[in-house]
Design a protein around this nucleic acid. Sequence first.
DNA 1: TTCGTCATGTAATGGGTTACATGATTAC
DNA 2: GTAATCATGTAACCCATTACATGACGAA
Lengths: 195, 195
Amino acid sequence: MLELAILGLLKERSMHGYQLKKRVAETLGAFWQVSYGSLYPALKRLQRSGAVEMVFPTEDVGRRKNVYRITEAGEALFQELLQETGRETGEDGKFQVRLAFFRYLKPETRIGMLERRRAFLEGRLSELRRGFKEYRERIDSYTLALMRHGVEFTEQDIRWLDDLIAAERRGARVKRSPRTARRAAAARIPQKERA
Amino acid sequence: MLELAILGLLKERSMHGYQLKKRVAETLGAFWQVSYGSLYPALKRLQRSGAVEMVFPTEDVGRRKNVYRITEAGEALFQELLQETGRETGEDGKFQVRLAFFRYLKPETRIGMLERRRAFLEGRLSELRRGFKEYRERIDSYTLALMRHGVEFTEQDIRWLDDLIAAERRGARVKRSPRTARRAAAARIPQKERA
DNA sequence: TTCGTCATGTAATGGGTTACATGATTAC
DNA sequence: GTAATCATGTAACCCATTACATGACGAA
């Protein structure tokens, strides 16, 4: 996961560890975080295995910055990791990291992953709704608020996936404003089927 | 975390491992999951340390079910764990688990935790927004969709917290329908301050 | 000069997950 | 009788986090 993310980001442009962490926080931050304690060792590991290499600081002397660049071996490893772990539909965070590299996958693979994720969330949602019905009367207000929040979160997540799936089928890219997308999704899904 | 959750749930009523996992999935499922591989060992650990004890199956013979009950020592441990880890405002999942046991905390502690969580999310949000501005033009549509989703998720989370905080201040409990609450929150918060 | 951020790193520590294995019970 | 769900457990494995330590640079 970590290695996949590192390679994917370095594919975009060469960076040093600190920048990688920042980049992750600013884009994936809501779903996934890296700590230096795992980032730097991972970078060294990848370097030893030849997947990345250091760019020697020609300019920018004085300040010690280890800029890494992905190698050809790294590109290969990236593709491998991206494919291999493709069944991780559950586990929030992992899915989203993978999604950040969707453009490197074939359209069919993309749709498949999106749909498996959707099915997973749908399953979770019905579980949560079942729980809601079952405990509604018996449970304290905090847990109740939590359950409600969980249901809404999951619903939002599913709507978002629906948009991505729709865009993918159209062959287009998601360009609409979030507000429009929300309305479209609300109109589209029947919601409330399955027990 | 795991032990806190186990003790808190057993405080409510005695259960066996399987039921505990189910209960977690049906209430906290959107934020946290337990696996048997950690649950059962934890249960044994707690039993050995005297925090829980087995209720011998008087009825229900034949089928092997290990029903656990919290002990007095367990109650003490629960309180300790609940207090101790109170600074975990970040780390999604942990906060929500803790929230499920809010009724066992003093109102001031509750508000404090809610507000620290809010501040944390606000920080994350501004980081995400900064990222959005910075990468908007340069980044692929999937990552962009992800970033947008992350922002919306976080905003929703903050609105939810605002409701909880408001209810807490009122001394009342959150009883409104989610839809009403959403409207109320939207009207209340200025949103969009801080860079 | 001092504070905040940039920047790297390590060691101890502490979880957790996956896969496997087993068997009873219930519903069809 | 057979498939699904209930129910418990272990071992191997694979991560990650926290805390600590260091130091340069830029702005006030």
